[in-house]
Write a protein that binds this DNA or RNA. Structure first.
Lengths: 192, 192
DNA sequence: CGGCATATATTCGTATCCGAATAAACGGCT
DNA sequence: AGCCGTTTATTCGGATACGAATATATGCCG
């Protein structure tokens, strides 16, 4: 297959929803695979005056690597850094009322996209397509629902004075340095 | 604050668990913030013959940007690309029995790290530290539990012949091209 | 049948990222 | 007092990522 065709195929099979695909990077990656001997060029052809295409093919060592990589990805969870987690780290930066409004907005958007996902799954399932090839979408949906539940719970807790709310409000009224003091006050706290 | 101190502070407050921090990148980022006017250098000092330290400070425009950025991060969910989701895309590459074994291993590791997280939360909560500053850890735990539930469910489904299993086994017995045929057979399928 | 949007396929330059190197000061141990 | 491991603080160069540009072919609408 030539690189462009790989990209097309991923797109047609909706894999780009789950595998980040940047056309610019595609060719760099191919070159890397080539340099490490995981693929070899089988032939180059050209159609009229269009750019030349190079067809690549997997080597046995490439097949091994694919297998080992997959085993690693499936068997070993790795820590990743979702943006929302980072934002929650700094949540006290926002005044509580604004935070609440934004969380409500997030919840609304999550509900919408979860509904869309569920619809997509149902649609494809109705065509009798084997579920084996949809499992990544089910995973995405499961995580979204979990986030939804978390945000919804967080909203309720804040509404009920969680935080504690008065302390949080305080951070936005008097002058700075308050957070540092807090961390000092609770000595060990989460830093020890 | 000078860059190194920012790094230390993030580390002491356990924020590096949630905010990816690479010492090499820190200085690049600071330079960017400087170039865009979000921070300014307030003073440079030097202690003996140690490298010179530059103390930076937030500008009003930087404070605005911080606020807008936070509002965006909290209010707008963004699509991200966890590695496990990509792996699930290609799950049929592994023979079903191996996939099962690997999923069981993942489940075990997830259970362990979730227990560790829960312990950490309980420990800090016991010291009476305001929950406002732990919210990112609770989020992480919630997502982990959801993944756990998903994997556990997936294992059970596979054990019960889901997939369908015979088709999946078939992919690893006869020669190649079978997946492509499958996608053709189910016409519209997930690609149309 | 002319023109304009879209598809085919890749290259390139810059932006970003990050591990490793540097180099002085400090602390503790014998 | 001298040695060694850790902490302080930053720089640098190579690896990676990616948006935008390129240049031709094709389809289709009026």
């Amino acid at each position: 297959m030539h690189p462009y065709e790989m990209g097309l195929l991923l797109k047609q099979r909706h894999k780009e929803d789950s595998i980040k695909l940047r056309y610019g990077s595609l060719y760099t990656v191919i070159e890397l695979l080539l340099a490490r001997g995981f693929i070899v060029a089988r032939e180059t052809s050209r159609d009229g005056k269009r750019p030349e295409r190079t067809i690549y093919e997997l080597t046995p060592s490439g097949r091994d690597e694919l297998h080992d990589w997959m085993a690693d990805l499936v068997g070993q969870p790795v820590k990743e850094y979702p943006q929302f987690e980072a934002a929650l780290c700094l949540l006290p930066i926002l005044p509580p009322d604004e935070a609440l409004a934004l969380l409500r907005q997030r919840l609304r958007l999550l509900e919408q996209s979860a509904a869309a996902l569920a619809g997509q799954i149902a649609g494809v399932a109705a065509e009798n397509f084997p579920p084996l090839f949809l499992v990544e979408t089910e995973y995405r949906l499961a995580l979204q629902k979990a986030e939804q539940a978390f945000v919804s719970d967080l909203i309720q807790r804040i509404e009920n004075g969680w935080g504690p709310l008065d302390l949080w409000r305080g951070l936005h009224q008097d002058r700075e340095g308050t957070i540092a003091k807090l961390y000092q006050q609770y000595g060990g706290g989460p830093m020890s």
